[in-house]
Amino acid sequence: MFARLNLRTEVLQSYAFVARNFNLIKRYWGWELVWLAYSTATSLAVVFIGEGSALITGAEDIDTSYFVLYLLLGTLVWGFLSGLFNDISEMIQWERWEGTIEYTLMAPVHRFTQIIGQAGFAVLHSLLFTMTIGVAMIIFFSLDLSDANLFGALLVLLAGSLSLVSLGVMASILPLLYTERGTQMTHIVQAFLLLISGVYYPIEVLPSVLQTLARVSPVYYVLNGIRSAVLEGTPTSELWGYIVPLLIIGVVGMPLGVWVFRQAELYAKRHGKLKRVG
């Protein structure tokens, strides 16, 4: 799988995917604006639940600003990770839609190289997108982040990105194998991650089976790590409890994801599933 990699060529080939995807974003800028407006509105809607918590429950001793920040981190981190997951898992669906899948897959590019390029774009794209929403939110809610360990939070986020990329790669085989319904199937994976990972609530409220599953979800460690760094100001040296599991999932998951993808590609080539239309 990693044999005979010529570093210069691999870098150029990886960059092909980054440049192509940013060119596509430039051309589809209207979609980006619509999606940005939608994401900002849904994030605001979630965060306003925190603002209204005292009114909803009738309790007066709720730390509203803590709750607002708790929900804000949930929605931003989820926005980042789900964006990342989408950008990776849609790498096949997008090509099917444009009709370029056969062209890309017959180019002399290792799948690992393609995934690195797609992942590089996905991290940059999701980071820019989430930061735009995040800055708007911080201004909107006048949040005080003076005690937050933002560097530590960023480290956790980057470690989490690696593991989410591997999950995205595995999910991307669904559109490869199921030409018509594959994308919808990736949405199910995403929805399940949202349910179990404690994005808007502590996982302790979940049934015990789901709590067990939450502990193998990388999203759970990303959220807890970032909440710890931002809400509690935990120093970076104490964030390894979150970073290490994420790195392990990523380091194991990436080669596994590439291998699974390669098997799916071979299956698709045996059964004629790369064809542009179904």
Binding site: N6, L12, Y15, A16, A19, A107, P108, V109
Partner: peptide, 9 residues
Amino acid sequence: LYGARLYGM
């Protein structure tokens, strides 16, 4: 450009 980069140019 995309196509050429895929072939290492």
